[in-house]
């Protein structure tokens, strides 16, 4: 599933534009704990989180996540937006809760 379709399925607002919206997404890590995200060991994945902190961006950079989706309509700080821009990590916010977001991305699991 392309990143743009992930964003579409989540009805997400784009806050930091992706350089390659057609990049292929194969999985998602959904967690509010950074260590859980660090421990996922996934590839070609996006992060879904309710955690709003600049460390989310640094974590995404470390694990090589292809995009970050903040759930429950949470808005990042300007600092987070700047960090995401600096690291080239697309950043979105979706009005959906974490659970609903996961349900909408269920095809990612079925595609495997």
């Amino acid at each position: 599933m392309q990143l743009r379709e992930v964003a579409l399925r989540l009805g997400a607002e784009e806050l930091v534009r992706p350089a390659t919206p057609d990049v292929e997404i194969r999985s998602a890590a959904a967690a509010d704990l950074l260590s859980d995200i660090l421990a996922t060991g996934k590839d070609e994945f996006v992060i879904l989180t309710g955690l709003v902190s600049p460390q989310v961006i640094r974590t995404a950079q470390v694990v090589g996540a292809l995009a970050i989706f903040l759930v429950r309509g949470k808005h990042p700080t300007q600092e987070m937006i700047g960090l995401a821009q600096a690291h080239g990590i697309p950043l979105y916010t979706t009005p959906l809760a974490l659970f609903e977001s996961c349900v909408r991305l269920a095809p990612l699991v079925e595609e495997r």
């Binding site: 600092e79 987070m80 937006i81 700047g82 960090l83 821009q85 600096a86 690291h87």
Partner: peptide, 8 residues
């Protein structure tokens, strides 16, 4: 945001 990006 730009300032944060520059600092980073």
């Amino acid at each position: 945001a730009e300032e944060a990006a520059r600092r980073e």
